[in-house]
Design a protein around this nucleic acid. Structure first.
Lengths: 211, 211, 211, 211
DNA sequence: GATGAATGAGGATTCATTCAT
DNA sequence: GATGAATGAATCCTCATTCAT
């Protein structure tokens, strides 16, 4: 009614009619940006719509509610990160090389696009279904890797998963420091890898009966 | 709790005129409980007042606004934790013993009262001034311990602080896992301590020029 | 029902191209069900479409807007009820028998399919054009029967219509009670008929000049 | 902020600070007017606030939510009507006189202030808790009077309550007709009373064994 | 005839905050 | 020091409705 410009504006066909899957992705992209800039609290149906350049309520055509939108974002981002890490790891031989590959991917992602997945996984404040999803994802990652470590080195799985929990969190911690202090990536990454390496070796040492 | 009585009450609430500092602490206590139960988002001026059994707006007599209240809580709790950890550490001889003592305190606090300080320090989602305060506190802790480690073992401080950042976060991670899975504290704590030990020893190894 | 699938579906919905009048009726059927289950407020363009298994906006191809749809439903259902009642009445001899027949139809309809017409006619809450239509329908029914009563018994029409208004509402009232308490139909129906009978006889008595 | 006039405006001290119970009543008054003018659907937190000349959200200080507001209105209005009717009835001797007194009150109230209670009690469309409350109120009125009738005339209570249900609804019906057609009150009221009288006498006749 | 994308208006709530007493 | 009344800004979310294909 208020004389909306019907001709596609700006660069790419950014406005008006988009096929559903594209619009959905676009909204998730907008949400991702918001999370990176101002945290999950900044993700409101309206802010996402505004960031996506669409009407305030269009989001509801794609997500049942705010929580579902965040869950969708979580799944997409964490899933993608795990897929990339898994792919890199598949090409690496030993377990430590696999770990190194995974860490590299993690840093790369954070360096290139901010790493929402990392932010979401480390957000211990998340409540409700999103919090549960985060816990579940963490526990599943810890157990996935923990099992491998346990199998490869013959150590008790219950210890391995705790180490993995520590290393996951530690990775988040150093990335947090890295992004906040601006120290050189090589320094942070290498210190972390050494530490992870030492932790795993220690796990092996104490996990197996000393003769 | 759900259905608050909206009908004007007869029985006048006895206004238990408290000395300022006590009332202030009482409100912070209420806020602490809320953070532990439902996260920082659950801390509203109203919920704090309700939990403290005072009128909705009394909080403003003690704190300029919600942010200031949370900052005050942060300072009180994190300060207290550091004080306790420092005290324990003072009584321990070597650096590893100090670290062990600190970790024990940390676990104790979480076990006994939930550990708001821990929660707040790990809340990477915090934004604004509270987020800055958290970063500052983390960085200062990392540097405090990092400097000691650097001094004692003759390793570069820049590496030591990164390890400390990792260990701080790792501690949060294992505590997170511990509280969410209910694994035995001894297991989690000992695995963490071994890992921290190994990490520091590795730091020393790699930090000193190999002959 | 609750969690509608928002992810684009693969299996294309088979568009069962229906002849216009059939589709129209199908939508009205859906609306009727909704009214019976959850009242007129539950009738939204979307809910009707969903209940009819068609796309959200198809309703607009058959009805100008929500109000028109409800009006169409009203006319169809109330008209149908009157037609059935009229048919039954035609086969009955005296006026009281006619009335009895009408009441039986009314109860039958409510018993068998819930009686949207009855619901709509008793919905004093209806506003706007739908409210007017309801008032008009009621007044016209009252006058139709009232005139017959007046003619047959030689009583003033102005009194007869008021009695009919009372009896119509009373019928709604006992049906309301009947459906809500589950008392036996025979009881409710017979009490109502006796009362209607007595009311009409009283009307005759007082309506004719006492000698 | 936008330069609100702080000096009390218009006639009575209608603006700003009011003692809680007064404000509460004022809001209920506003809601009553809205129900009378446009039905319960027109009662929104905002419309009530607007009608009361207060900010959009003040209502929440007095009522938990919209439903509670409507329930409070229902209780206040229906309660008041019953109290007035009961008072009038107490002063009348026989049962029919009591009924006459009650009907007079009912008509009076509708004539003088529109009769929200009447509207609410006849709104068969009401759903949820308000609907339940309405049903409960109706059933309780029916049983209260039904029991008296049963006791006084020695007829089965199960028949008496049905007659009362019919008469209650009939009262609503004639009032509905009265307000919509503007026929003289004396006509409508007297026809209704005769009909009620006849119905009760018929109840007595059929309820007692014919010798 | 039917769908799918998109909008805008309206209404429920919550909360931080101000002000007067 | 403490309360109680009141406001306004943000959100969440539902629906009627329009338009292009």
């Amino acid at each position: 009614m208020t004389a909306v410009d019907k001709t596609p504006k700006e660069s790419a066909g950014r406005r008006s009619r988009l096929p559903a899957p594209l619009r959905r992705d676009q909204l998730l992209d907008a949400a991702r940006t918001l999370v990176l800039e101002d945290g999950t609290e900044a993700v409101t149906m309206e802010s996402v719509a505004a960031a996506g350049g669409v009407s305030k309520t269009l989001g509801y055509a794609y997500f049942d509610n705010r929580t579902e939108l965040l869950l969708a974002l979580f799944d997409r981002e964490v899933g993608e990160l795990q897929r990339r890490a898994a792919a890199e790891m598949a090409e690496s031989p030993g377990l430590m090389d696999k770990l190194r590959a995974a860490v590299r991917v993690w840093f790369d992602v954070v360096a290139s696009e901010g790493g929402v997945a990392s932010v979401l996984l480390q957000s211990s404040q998340l409540r409700g279904r999103l919090g549960e999803r985060r816990q579940a994802a963490l526990r599943s990652i810890e157990e996935l890797y923990g099992r491998q470590v346990a199998a490869e080195f013959g150590v008790p799985e219950e210890r391995a998963v705790v180490v993995m929990a520590a290393l996951m969190a530690a990775l988040g911690g150093v990335i947090d420091r890295w992004t906040s202090t601006g120290e050189p990536r090589e320094l942070v990454e290498s210190v972390y890898l050494e530490m992870a390496d030492a932790s795993l070796r220690q796990l092996v040492r104490s996990g197996r009966p000393r003769p």
